[in-house]
């Protein structure tokens, strides 16, 4: 058990090398891969999430932790069949058309991944059609859109309209985020939720898929 604690602690402190070491040791000893993920890697990242929310940890530290966790995941993943990978749900994420802001959206992707979500990060400047294509391909429960510009935030509305036209609106929950958008904007354009930061976005996703991580 103490090993899991140490693994979690190494994720929390963002110690990439140590996380890989412990994970490899555990694999060598025959520890169940899913247990390494749940009791070690994700357990650590959950603490990071809580501390980040409490402003006890900050963005660069969260990034280090996420990177350390990814280092461990990389070793464990090949040992698990795709179907057995624990996943709270699938989220398609992108910054909307005309908008090149990447940082906030990628932070959200990182936090969601570390919360057990499978994240399809489409990148920036994604047209409504791009979201539709990804939704058809990946069948996510949730699609998340980011915009940092007041001109591009209306492309969130355009994407929702196209979802309706394509008959996909009932199949996914739509969440939005970014500096110029708000809860009231989300309601105005018919989105299912608004996340003011990455942690809020994660909680929102958990609520929307109706499961706890």
């Amino acid at each position: 058990m103490s090993n899991f604690n140490e693994l979690a602690e190494s994720v929390i402190s963002g110690n990439f090398g140590r996380v890989k070491e412990i994970t490899q040791e555990m694999i060598n000893k025959g520890v169940e891969p899913l247990q390494i993920i749940n009791d070690g890697l994700i357990a650590g990242m959950n603490v990071v999430g809580v501390r980040f929310k409490a402003e006890d940890m900050f963005v660069p530290e969260v990034m280090m932790s996420a990177k350390a966790m990814a280092g461990g995941m990389e070793l464990v993943k090949p040992l698990i069949a795709e179907t057995e990978m624990p996943s709270v749900g699938t989220v398609v994420l992108g910054t909307v058309k005309g908008d090149l802001h990447d940082i906030g959206k990628s932070l959200v992707a990182m936090i969601l991944e570390s919360g057990g979500f499978k994240v399809i990060n489409l990148g920036t400047d994604i047209a409504p059609e791009g979201f539709i294509k990804a939704i058809r391909e990946h069948k996510p429960q949730i699609v998340g859109m980011s915009a940092l510009l007041t001109t591009t935030m209306l492309n969130m509305k355009a994407t929702i309209e196209l979802l309706k036209e394509e008959g996909l609106r009932d199949q996914v929950k739509v969440i939005i985020g970014g500096a110029p958008v708000s809860q009231s904007f989300a309601e105005e354009i018919g989105a299912d939720g608004y996340g003011s930061d990455a942690m809020v976005a994660k909680d929102l996703c958990i609520k929307l898929v109706g499961k706890a991580s």
Partner: peptide
């Protein structure tokens, strides 16, 4: 007043 997208 960029956030007032509908009547900017």
């Amino acid at each position: 007043c960029g956030t007032m997208v509908f009547d900017e």
